[in-house]
Each structure stands twice: as C-alpha cells, then as structure tokens.
Design a protein around this nucleic acid. Structure first.
Length: 277
DNA sequence: AGCCAGGACAAGT
DNA sequence: ACTTGTCATGGC
C-alpha cells in the first residue's frame, strides 16, 4: 500500500478498494459522521481525523506520516491484504455474494477499551442511540483534543465514578456494566493488552468476567478492538444468516478470517432484509 | 402509540 | 442445557 505526504498532516493513499461510506456506517464504530461535502469526521486514538475519497485516492487529514505508520495504518486495516483474504472467502458462494455487495468494507482496529465499552453500550440498543450515548460519554468525561472534539475517556477516568454520575449518558441499565468493566480493567483483572495474543477462548472467558459482557459483546471487543479476525460475533442478524445459509454451522475453513466474513454478512443481511437476502 | 434495538442476566423448567 | 421475563431509553 503506497502512501505519500502531500502536505503537513494529510496522508494520501492509493487505496481505491477502501470504501469509507460503508466502512464507517456498517455498525462497527460509533464515532464517525459524514459531513455535507461527503467527508467523514471522527476521533480515533485521541486524534480528530477527516477521511475523504477523491478519485482513486484516499485522503486522511489530522495525522502526520509518523502517526500514520505507528497507529492509523493498523486502525484502517491497511496492513492487511484484503484482496487475498476476500479471494479466499469468496470460495463460499454466500460470502462471495456478500463481499461483492460491499467489497470496500474494512474492519477497523479500534482501541481495545473503546471497542469493549462501545459494545457494552450496544446491547439491546439501536445504532443511532448507541452513537448518542458514546458521544455523551466522550463529551462528559473525555479530554478535549480539538475544538468541540473529545477523546474516548480511559477506564481510569470512569472507574471511580458512580452510576449516578453516569446519568447524563442516559445509558439505562448499561451504566453499571460500564463501571464494572472499567474497574476490572483498571485493577488488572482483565488485561486488555494480552487479549490479542491469548487463545481465543481464553480471551473470551476473560472478558466475560465483566458484568454485562456475554459471548457477543466479547467477540465484538476482540474483533473490533483487539485485531482478532478469528472472532465471530453472533447477533440476531448473523443468527438469521446462519439459520438460512449455514444450518450445519459456519464452515471452519473460513474461521481464520471469520470476523471479516461476519461483517460482510452482517451488512449484507441488514441491507437486504426486505428482499429476503 | 407501540414495537424493537449489533444482549445479558436471573430465575424458572 | 434450554426457555422466558426483565432491564432503561428512545429511534422509527
């Protein structure tokens, strides 16, 4: 993947297969919004970023080359060979159709704590409201990093708080879950940094010690926050896909990149519910 | 107005 | 091990 520095704090990529519209709007992240001019604005790793696609180029504004190499390349999954991965996954006809439907989806590797916290909030909730709660969480407790933009508050910032103090979030019964998660992370009972290396099942069990974290939320945290592309979150949409197309279970030969497959299937099913996908 | 949302938990078979 | 009611809030 070629990248070049055309001006300070703007990276230009030859990344014509990366589709910001679907990547930022497919339910994996909650801090990106599309501007009137079509550019996407969001906060990741404590930086305010703007992503714009123009012709075949992808413009990332808000980070220098050094930051891009160290952090953002991984965040945008530009260090993965999606052509190769999607080629493999397309050996399955259903996956081939889902990938062809939106080939530009990329799994974002978010900060582990942000992903965990966001998907705790996501349970029995809808995407617009999840974004609202996450937004209020950052506004109330995250460091100010630019005009009107806040970083995601670290677990250390939330752990000392009470449920009452989280009431501005209007997160309902999830407030206690957020606090339980932040406390277990702060006291080291859950080691987020170690989750990317552990056997997958151990990592899931570790996360599920947290009140409010079941199999689905654990898998989302691992996939979207720890780079575990073998994690396969099963929500209501994926259950429908599995029941209809994979009655004997998801084929094991594709489980190595099951998380990527899952996101293509999730988006496909959600977009095509009326046509019976 | 009423149904449902990228679920998890506790209590019940 | 599987099923069911409940949880707090608001988007559509």
């Amino acid at each position: 993947m070629n990248s070049s520095l055309i001006k300070k704090d703007t990276i230009t990529l030859d990344a014509n297969t990366f589709d910001p519209d679907v990547t930022f709007d497919c339910g994996q992240c909650f801090r990106w919004d599309k501007r009137e001019d079509g550019a996407w604005c969001g906060v990741a790793y404590g930086r305010k970023l703007t992503v714009k696609k123009d012709g075949g180029g992808l413009f990332i504004e808000g980070a220098d080359e050094c930051t891009f190499e160290a952090v953002l390349k991984g965040y945008f999954n530009l260090d993965r060979d999606y052509d190769k991965i999607c080629g493999q996954l397309s050996g399955d006809p259903v996956l081939a159709a889902a990938i062809q439907f939106a080939p530009g989806i990329r799994i974002l590797r978010q900060e582990p704590w942000e992903a965990l916290c966001s998907f705790i909030i996501s349970q029995n909730n809808n995407i617009p409201r999840i974004k609202g709660i996450v937004s209020r969480l950052c506004e109330n407790f995250g460091d100010l990093i630019a005009d009107g933009e806040h970083a995601f508050p670290p677990a250390e910032r939330l752990a000392p708080l009470s449920v009452q103090e989280l009431s501005p979030l209007r997160s309902g019964f999830r407030a206690g879950y957020i606090l339980d998660a932040s406390r277990r992370v702060v006291d080291g009972e859950v080691d987020l940094a170690a989750l990317s290396e552990m056997p997958l099942d151990d990592a899931r069990k570790s996360l599920m010690k947290i009140k409010g974290v079941g199999p689905k939320v654990a898998d989302c945290a691992l996939l979207f926050g720890c780079g575990r592309l073998d994690a396969f979150p099963v929500d209501v949409w994926i259950k429908r896909v599995l029941a209809r197309f994979y009655p004997d279970g998801f084929p094991q030969e594709y489980i190595k990149y099951g998380g990527i497959a899952q996101q293509f299937l999730f988006h496909y099913a959600r977009c095509c519910e009326d046509s019976g996908f």
